[in-house]
Design a protein around this nucleic acid. Structure first.
Lengths: 213, 213, 213, 213
DNA sequence: TATGAATGAGGATTCATTCAT
DNA sequence: TATGAATGAATCCTCATTCAT
C-alpha cells in the first residue's frame, strides 16, 4: 500500500512541477520558432495549461526565456566542468569525453540554446551578458584548462592558447546551429558522429607534440 | 568636361542606385538588431528616404531581407569559388587564401548574414532553403573540392570527406557569430587573426599526409 | 474565569466578524487606490485571509464595493439625522455640531467615500443611484430641514432654500476630496479646522437675519 | 476666388487639427466614463479615426490624458487670472465675474476635469502633482489675491485668509462634480444659477465689513 | 469554511503595409 | 516617383472569478 498523500501534498507536487513543465514546453517552441515568434499562448497549450497560468510562475516572457536558458545550460556546463576537472584523465581523453557528451545532447532540444542566444542577444542585452559571463566564459576557461594540461603533460605541442581556444568548440557549435536552423529546411545532412570523429582525429593530430626523433 | 546629364537622366541614375542604398542600410540595421527588431521606418531613415519609398522597390519586408542576403552573399561566394578553382594552387594555399579573405570580410557587416540566417530560418523557410541550396551547398562543394584535391595531390592524408567538410568553416562561423551577438555584450574578446592562424596551423597539420619514413 | 468557548463557537464568532473585517480592509485600499486599481488579492491580504474567501461573503467585487459604501455611510448619516432632529437646538448650533462631527470623521478613511462615488459613478450606475437616493437625498433633506428651521425661528433671513442647500456641505466635500486625492501628491495643505471655523463664521453671518434696528 | 491651397498644405492642416480633435473626443469620453474605463478604440471612433492614429500623436494613453487636462484647464485658468488681475475692479465684482465665467463653462465637458483628477490622482501621481502645482496652486493664489484686495480696500472684514481660501470655490466644485457623477444617475437636480447666486449673496454678506455705526 | 491554483476575457501598444496627395 | 498619414491585425499581460481539494 503506497503511503497516503494528503490533498495538499498532491497539489503542492503539481505546483512544484509546473515551472519545469512550462520551461520544457517553452524550450521546444523557442527552439523551433525563436523567441519573438513564439506566442505564450502556444507555450501554454504545449504545456497543457492556460495562458494566465504561465504568469503565476514567470512575471514576463523574458523571465521565462531566462529560465529556459538557465535550466538548459547550467546542468550541462557543470557536468562538463566536473568531467574536465579529473586530473587523472589525459587531455585527449577529456576532449573525447566532452565530444561524446555533446553528441548525446544533440538529440535533445538543449542545443537550440546557442541559436536562441545568437538570435536574441541584440534584443536582450542582460541575457547576453549573463550567457557570456556565466556560460561562455566558464566554458572557455574549461577548454583552456584542458589544453594547458595537455601541453604541460607533453601531449600537445605548445600552441597559442588564445588562438586555439575556439577551435575545439567550433564544430559543435556549427552542428548545433545547423540542426536548429538550416538543417530543418534542406536535405543537406551532416552525420554528427562522423564530423565529431573526424574533428577529434584532425584536431588531436594537429595539436600533437612532435614525435621524438 | 563630362557630358552634361539632363535632370531626367540624373533622376534615372538615382533610381537605379536606390535599391542598393536601401539594401545597404537594411544590412547594417539587420546586423545590429536582427530582422524582427528592425523597423522599416528606421531602414528608410538610414537610407535617407521615406518609409513608403521602400515599397516602390521591395514588395514586403521579407523581400528586402532576401535582397540583403543575396547581395551580401553571392559576390563573395563567387569570388571564393573563383579563388578555389585555380588548379595551380595547392590545397593548403587555397585554404590560406580563403581564410585571408574571410578576415577581410570580418570588418564589414557582411558577416552578420549567418547570424540573420540562423535567427530567422524558422520564420522564413523559403529564405532558409534559398540559403541552404544556393550558399551552403555551394560553399560545401567548394571546400569538398579543395580537400579532395589536397588528398589527390598527396598534401593531405585520406580523411573522411563528409566528416571533414565542416571543420574548415566552423571557426569562421564562430568568429562571425561572436562578433555580431555575444561579442557586443561582453569584454571577452577573440583575436580573429590569431584564431585563424592557429586554426590553419592545427588543421593543416592534422590533415597532413604522413611524412615519408 | 471566562466561560469556555468550544472551537465550534469560536469559529462561528470568527465567521460573523469576517464580512466586517473584509469591508474594513477594502475601505482602506479603495480609499488609497480607488476601486479599479484595488486588487481583491490585496484586500484579502489586508484582511488576513485568502482571495477565495472573499467570495464566500461577497459574490462580486462590486457587491463588496456596495457593502463598503453602505457600512461607511449609513451609521454616520443616521447619527447626523438624529443630531439634526433635536427641536431644542438652534439651527446655528446644529450646523456647528455637524461640522464638528465631520472634523472627527476626517481622520478616518470614511471620508474617502465621496471620492469613490465621484470616481466610479459612471461605471456603477446602480451604486450611484443608491448613493444619490439613500445618502445624498437624505443628507440634503436634513440640511434643508435645519435651514428651514433657522428661517422659521428667525435665526436666518429667508434665502432661496434650493440655492442654499449645497452651500453648507460644499467645503466639507472639498476638504474630503482634497485629502484623498491631490492632498496626497502636493505640499499644499489645508488646515481643516481653520477652514471649517471660517466657513461657519462666514456662512452664519451671511445667513443671519438682519439685526433689528 | 479663394486662394489655392496646395495638397501639401491641405494635408498639413489636417495633421495640425488631429491632436485637437483627438483630445476633444477623449475629453468627452473620459468625462463620461473615467480614464480607466475609456478604451482608446472608442476615443478613436469618436474622433472618426482608427486606433493606431492616436499613437501618431500621443505616445501613450496617459499622455493623451495629460494633454486633455492641459488643454481643458490652462486656457481657462489664464482667462481667470487675467480677469482677477484688473486692479480697478472691486473684489466683489471680481468674484461675481469668476462665478459668471464658471456658469458658462458648466455647459461644456471642461468641468469634468476635476472629477477626472479626483478619480485618477492615485493612479497618476505625476499628473496629480502637475495639477496641484499648476492649477490648484495658481487658482488658490488668485483667490487669495482677490480676498486680500477686498480686505485692503475695506470691502471685506479681515478674515483668516487660509481658512477662507476654499470657501469661494467649494460650491463650484460641488456643482461640477455633481454634474459629471451623481447628477447623471438621479433625478435630484441643482439649479446652478440659483446655487451660484445664493452662494455669492451669502458669501459676500458673510465677508462684508461691518457697517459703520 | 477556507484555500490558492487555474482560467480567459479584455485592452494597450506596435509596426508592416496602404494610399491619397 | 516620393511622401508620410492612416490603418488594423497581432500579442503581451492583468485580474476578477471559479473550483478542486
Amino acid at each position: 500500500m503506497p503511503p497516503a498523500i494528503s490533498p495538499t501534498r498532491r497539489r503542492a507536487r503539481r505546483k512544484d512541477a509546473r515551472p519545469g513543465e512550462i520551461v520544457e514546453a517553452a524550450l521546444g517552441l523557442f527552439a523551433e520558432r525563436g523567441f519573438a515568434a513564439t506566442k505564450l499562448e502556444d507555450v501554454a497549450a504545449a504545456a497543457g495549461i492556460s495562458k494566465g497560468t504561465i504568469y503565476l510562475y514567470f512575471p514576463t516572457k523574458e523571465h521565462l526565456f531566462r529560465a529556459v536558458v538557465r535550466l538548459a545550460v547550467l546542468p550541462n556546463l557543470e557536468a562538463a566542468m566536473a568531467l574536465a576537472a579529473d586530473p587523472e584523465r589525459s587531455a585527449a581523453d577529456t576532449l573525447r569525453l566532452l565530444a561524446e557528451r555533446f553528441l548525446e545532447l544533440l538529440d535533445s532540444d538543449l542545443t537550440a540554446i546557442p541559436k536562441l542566444i545568437v538570435a536574441e542577444a541584440g534584443n536582450f542585452p542582460a541575457l547576453a551578458q549573463f550567457y557570456a559571463d556565466e556560460v561562455a566564459r566558464k566554458g572557455m576557461a574549461l577548454i583552456r584548462g584542458v589544453l594547458a594540461r595537455g601541453i604541460a603533460r607533453g601531449e600537445f605541442r605548445p600552441v597559442d592558447l588564445d588562438g586555439a581556444l575556439p577551435l575545439f568548440s567550433a564544430p559543435f557549435l556549427l552542428l548545433a546551429l545547423w540542426k536548429h536552423s538550416l538543417g530543418r529546411h534542406t536535405d543537406i545532412e551532416f552525420n554528427p558522429r562522423a564530423v565529431v570523429a573526424t574533428h577529434l582525429d584532425v584536431l588531436l593530430r594537429g595539436l600533437a607534440a612532435e614525435a621524438p626523433p
